[in-house]
């Protein structure tokens, strides 16, 4: 597999399911594995008639020549990916690494906060900070114990790890903001905080660090089409300025981001997305027996 000369067909070489909604795909793309840095994202298309969706790079392995994505099946496209993206299949397209890589500076003590799906993309940042010699406090939040993943990976690169669950089934009971308060309480010398997750969680994190003035970086995930600065769909308000998350970000100063604007803009295509999801769910119900019946003979001929 580690043949850097083989061009990528966006082949999925590993699939791992963390729960019934969250799954991991490792995709063979040696060139991208070589170029990727913490904080960057890719845009993928599951099939030729699919939409282009941005996904933050959760990990990259230069030896294996792979890019890792962690995906939550929430909309039509991600649910289709959950159904279709098996080991050995290929994505229709994957382009990247996009966005400005995270700036891993001279910070000596950092908080790396990941909530839900944000847990995966904050991992390369935690690792990069660790490699730069910083003291890394990881804070990861899940709804409950069953949805947890990558605890070991985080323990390997964090000097401290605070696990938060909504129901207290693992770690401390409460949101990641509770974890941030604990960490700030225990350490007065935190230089920086990186928070990745749903907008509402990042907003909470920015508010949690604001009183102590800790520089807080958030990674924004607005609606995008091309990811190269061409469509302007991903524009976000940062302070007084309007920026494009795809080429001016995706990392921004969390204390300046207008999260309410971001959350509003994320709902732009809600109606279409819900319709597509409903149709997809119907289609699955209708198709399932057919697929089951057809699978046998098809496999036999291949």
């Amino acid at each position: 597999m580690a043949d850097p000369g083989r061009p990528s067909r966006f082949e999925i070489v590993t699939r791992e399911d963390f729960s019934n909604v969250t799954f991991l795909l490792e995709i063979y793309h040696p060139m991208m594995a070589k170029a990727a840095k913490a904080g960057q994202f890719v845009i993928v298309m599951e099939q030729a008639q699919g939409e282009r969706i941005p996904l933050t790079i959760a990990d990259y392995d230069r030896q294996r020549g792979t890019i890792t994505l962690v995906i939550q099946a929430v909309g039509k496209t991600t649910r289709a990916m959950q159904q279709n993206c098996q080991r050995g299949t290929c994505l229709h397209a994957m382009v990247g690494p996009m966005g400005i890589p995270s700036h891993i500076g001279q910070a000596r003590k950092v908080l790396c906060v990941g909530g839900g799906l944000g847990v995966a993309p904050v991992y390369p940042q935690a690792r990069a900070y660790k490699d730069s010699g910083a003291y890394v406090i990881g804070i990861v939040g899940f709804r409950n114990k069953d949805l947890m993943f990558w605890e070991q990976r985080f323990r390997a690169c964090c000097d401290e790890l605070i696990v938060c669950t909504d129901d207290g089934s693992a770690g401390i009971k409460g949101l990641v903001t509770e974890g941030i308060r604990q960490a700030i309480g225990g350490h007065s010398d935190i230089d920086e905080c990186v928070a990745i997750g749903p907008p509402v969680m990042m907003k909470g994190c920015a508010e949690a660090t604001r009183p102590s003035g800790i520089r807080t970086i958030v990674s924004l995930n607005p609606v995008m089409v091309d990811g190269t600065g061409m469509c302007g769909g991903c524009r976000v308000k940062v302070g007084e300025r309007v920026m494009f998350a795809c080429v001016d970000g995706p990392d921004f100063d969390g204390h300046k981001v207008d999260f309410d604007d971001l959350m509003f803009r994320l709902k732009r295509y809600n109606a279409s997305e819900q319709a597509a999801s409903a149709r997809f769910a119907d289609g699955c119900r209708m198709r399932d027996p057919v697929i089951a019946a057809a699978a046998g003979p098809q496999n036999a001929t291949q």
Partner: peptide, 20 residues
């Protein structure tokens, strides 16, 4: 234009890209 031309949003839902 990108949604409509390249991504075929006008053929939604056959194509997945939406356009309100």
């Amino acid at each position: 234009l990108t949604r409509c031309n390249l991504m075929h949003a006008r053929e939604f839902p056959s194509y997945d890209t939406p356009l309100q």
